[in-house]
């Protein structure tokens, strides 16, 4: 009986957690990038790094809220609230939940670029974030 309950709880827990790894996201972005652009040749850390720091001719960059060093905590540009580091090496919760990652790319890309990010952009920036130790 106890065994059944333990198994049930473990199963429920893993269902609820839906944990993924940053590399799972990288692979998914690669598949999407291929669909968006047949000439896709892979992600670039250098491009991701520059993109992260750029304001794209508007008000904010990713660094405005996530700090110019993604291994360090950031601060929301308007409210001043402290935001945990974005680099997975510094914050193991990052890029482990699909609903969270999707929600924030949608919002933050809209705030920074005024449009959704392409899969190429998401993959480039994630590749850059994964080089941060």
């Amino acid at each position: 009986m106890r065994l059944i309950i333990t198994t049930a709880i473990t199963a429920l827990f893993s269902l609820a957690a839906q944990a993924e790894t940053p590399v799972d996201f990288q692979n998914r972005f690669a598949t999407q990038a291929q669909q968006e652009n047949p000439a896709f040749t892979g992600f670039s850390v250098e491009r991701g790094k520059q993109w992260y720091a750029s304001t794209h001719g508007r008000e904010w960059s990713c660094a405005s809220c996530h700090s110019s060093n993604p291994a360090a905590p950031g601060q929301h540009a308007t409210t001043g609230k402290v935001i945990g580091p974005l680099a997975p090496a510094a914050n193991p919760e990052r890029f482990t939940r699909a609903d969270k990652v999707e929600k924030w790319f949608k919002r933050n890309c809209n705030d920074v670029l005024g449009r959704p990010c392409t899969a190429q952009e998401k993959g480039d920036v994630l590749s850059y974030l994964l080089t941060i130790r």
Binding site: T78, K103, K106, R107, N108, N110, D111
Partner: peptide, 8 residues
């Protein structure tokens, strides 16, 4: 929402 996208 006050200059930011907070859709849920």
């Amino acid at each position: 929402h006050f200059g930011t996208d907070a859709r849920i």
